[in-house]
Computed example of a mutant assay.
Amino acid sequence: MLDGKSIDTSMQFGAITGVPMATRSGDFPVDAAFYLLKQCGYSVESLEADLEKHADCSGLL
């Protein structure tokens, strides 16, 4: 923050990486994503939704 305005973000490349927040998982190992896709039946779309959008599945909640 500078003069009450945001000048930076805690996110890195996208919403999955960076500091965990209420609805953001924070750093997530890519090999875990591959495991979920291959072994647990996730589609790319459902994994993305769980990691980025569903507060009950990721983040501090």
Results as ranks from 00 to 15, higher is better:
M1F: 00
L2G: 06
L2S: 08
D3C: 05
D3A: 07
G4A: 12
G4P: 03
K5D: 10
S6H: 11
I7V: 14
D8H: 10
D8P: 00
T9P: 02
T9N: 09
T9M: 10
S10N: 11
S10R: 12
S10I: 13
M11F: 04
Q12W: 13
F13H: 11
F13G: 11
F13R: 14
F13M: 09
G14Y: 08
A15L: 05
A15S: 04
I16L: 12
T17Y: 12
T17A: 14
T17R: 12
T17F: 11
V19I: 13
V19R: 14
V19P: 01
P20Y: 05
P20S: 05
P20H: 11
P20C: 04
M21S: 03
A22N: 10
A22S: 08
A22R: 12
A22Q: 08
A22C: 07
T23L: 03
R24F: 02
R24H: 10
R24W: 06
R24A: 08
R24T: 09
S25Y: 02
S25V: 12
G26K: 07
D27T: 05
D27Q: 05
D27H: 09
D27P: 02
D27V: 02
F28P: 01
F28N: 07
P29M: 14
V30K: 14
D31I: 08
D31N: 07
D31K: 10
D31E: 15
D31R: 06
D31Y: 07
A32Q: 14
A32M: 15
F34P: 00
F34L: 15
L37P: 09
L37Q: 15
L37V: 13
L37W: 10
L37M: 15
K38T: 09
K38P: 00
C40H: 15
C40V: 04
G41M: 10
G41E: 10
G41Q: 12
Y42D: 09
S43G: 06
S43E: 09
V44G: 07
E45K: 13
E45S: 10
E45W: 06
E45N: 10
E45G: 11
S46D: 11
S46C: 01
S46M: 05
L47N: 06
L47Q: 11
L47T: 05
E48N: 13
E48S: 13
E48M: 14
E48A: 14
E48R: 15
A49G: 04
A49C: 08
D50H: 06
D50F: 01
L51F: 03
E52K: 04
K53E: 13
K53Q: 13
K53L: 11
H54F: 01
A55Q: 07
A55L: 05
A55P: 04
D56S: 06
D56V: 02
C57V: 03
S58Y: 00
S58I: 03
S58R: 07
S58V: 03
G59E: 03
G59F: 01
G59W: 01
G59I: 01
L60A: 02
L60D: 03
L60V: 10
L61P: 05
